[in-house]
Amino acid sequence: HEITLHINGRRVKLRFRDEKAAEILKEAAKKGLDEEELKKLAEELWR
């Protein structure tokens, strides 16, 4: 699955395995994680 989040006016595509991962990524984006941090988090969730 993929999700596209808008971060600092940019579109960031993240891959994720399940809905739980999608929710975690959305929450992290709301908390203000930047693009690099979100990509790292997405990679961690993928494993």
Rank of each mutant, 00 (worst) to 15 (best):
D18M: 03
I24Q: 10
E2D: 06
K20S: 11
K39S: 08
F16C: 14
H1M: 13
R10Q: 12
E37C: 14
K13P: 04
K40F: 12
H1Y: 14
L33I: 10
E27N: 10
T4D: 06
W46C: 02
A21L: 03
L33C: 05
A29I: 13
R47K: 14
I7H: 03
H6W: 15
W46E: 03
V12L: 10
K26S: 07
N8I: 02
T4V: 14
A28T: 03
R17Q: 07
A29V: 12
E23Q: 13
H1A: 11
K26F: 10
A29G: 06
K26H: 07
E37R: 12
E43N: 08
I7R: 02
L45A: 02
E44R: 09
T4I: 15
E19Y: 09
F16Q: 01
A29F: 13
E19M: 11
I3C: 03
G9P: 00
H1C: 10
K31Y: 10
N8K: 09
H1E: 08
L38S: 01
E27L: 11
I3K: 01
R47P: 04
E35D: 07
K31S: 13
L33H: 08
F16T: 13
K13W: 04
E27V: 08
L45Q: 02
E43Y: 09
L38N: 00
D34L: 11
W46L: 04
E27A: 13
T4S: 07
A22W: 08
K26R: 13
K26T: 10
L5R: 00
N8H: 06
L25M: 04
K39P: 01
R17H: 09
E23K: 13
R47A: 14
R17F: 09
A22K: 14
L14K: 00
V12A: 01
E27T: 09
I3W: 03
D34A: 11
A28L: 05
K13R: 12
E43P: 00
L25F: 07
R17N: 07
A21T: 08
D18E: 08
E44K: 11
H1T: 09
R17S: 06
R17W: 13
A22P: 05
R11Y: 15
K13H: 10
A29E: 04
K39Q: 11
V12P: 01
A22T: 04
L45M: 09
K20A: 12
A22I: 08
G9R: 02
E44F: 11
W46S: 02
K20F: 09
H1N: 14
A29R: 03
L5A: 02
V12I: 11
L41Y: 04
K26E: 07
L45G: 01
N8D: 07
R47D: 14
K26D: 04
I3A: 02
A22V: 09
A42P: 00
E44H: 11
K39W: 09
A28I: 04
E19S: 12
F16Y: 15
D18Y: 06
I3D: 01
E36S: 11
K39F: 11
R11I: 15
L5T: 01
V12C: 04
R15S: 04
A29H: 13
A28Q: 07
E36Y: 13
E43L: 10
R17M: 14
L5N: 00
H1K: 13
L25Y: 03
L41E: 01
W46M: 05
G9E: 04
A42C: 05
E44Y: 13
E2C: 13
E19A: 14
A22S: 07
L33W: 14
W46D: 03
E43H: 07
D18I: 03
E27K: 09
N8L: 05
K40W: 10
E19D: 11
A28W: 08
K39Y: 13
A22E: 08
L33D: 05
I24R: 07
E2G: 04
L41H: 01
F16K: 02
K30A: 13
L41W: 03
I7T: 06
A29Y: 13
N8Y: 05
L38W: 02
R15N: 05
I7L: 08
G9I: 01
A21V: 05
R47G: 13
A42V: 04
E23R: 11
E23A: 13
A21Q: 07
R15I: 06
R15C: 05
H6F: 14
E27M: 10
A21I: 03
L14V: 08
V12D: 00
K39L: 14
V12T: 03
H1R: 11
K30L: 12
E35Q: 07
L38K: 00
G9S: 03
K20W: 10
E2K: 06
R47C: 11
R10K: 15
R15Q: 08
E44L: 13
R11E: 14
G32M: 06
L41C: 06
H6G: 03
I24Y: 08
T4K: 03
D34R: 09
E23L: 12
G9V: 01
E36I: 12
R11T: 15
R15K: 13
D18F: 06
L38V: 09
T4R: 04
A22L: 15
E44P: 00
E43D: 12
G9F: 00
L45E: 01
A28Y: 08
H6Q: 13
W46Q: 02
K40S: 12
D34I: 09
F16G: 04
A21S: 15
I24G: 03
A29C: 05
L38G: 00
D18S: 12
E19L: 11
W46V: 03
K20M: 11
K31M: 14
I7E: 01
V12N: 00
E19Q: 15
L25A: 03
E43K: 07
W46T: 02
N8W: 02
T4P: 01
L38M: 12
L45H: 02
A42F: 03
T4L: 09
L5M: 07
R15E: 03
K20G: 09
R10N: 09
E44A: 11
K26P: 00
H6E: 15
E2Q: 09
I24H: 05
D34N: 14
L45P: 01
A22Q: 08
G32W: 05
A29S: 06
E44V: 11
E23H: 12
L45R: 01
E2Y: 15
D34G: 14
A21E: 04
E19N: 10
F16L: 07
L38F: 03
R15W: 11
E36C: 09
G9D: 05
I7F: 05
A42Y: 03
A28E: 06
H6N: 13
A28G: 06
K39C: 03
H6L: 15
L14Y: 04
K40H: 11
K26A: 06
K31R: 14
K30F: 12
K13V: 15
N8A: 06
V12W: 02
F16D: 00
E27I: 08
K13L: 08
G32Y: 04
G32E: 04
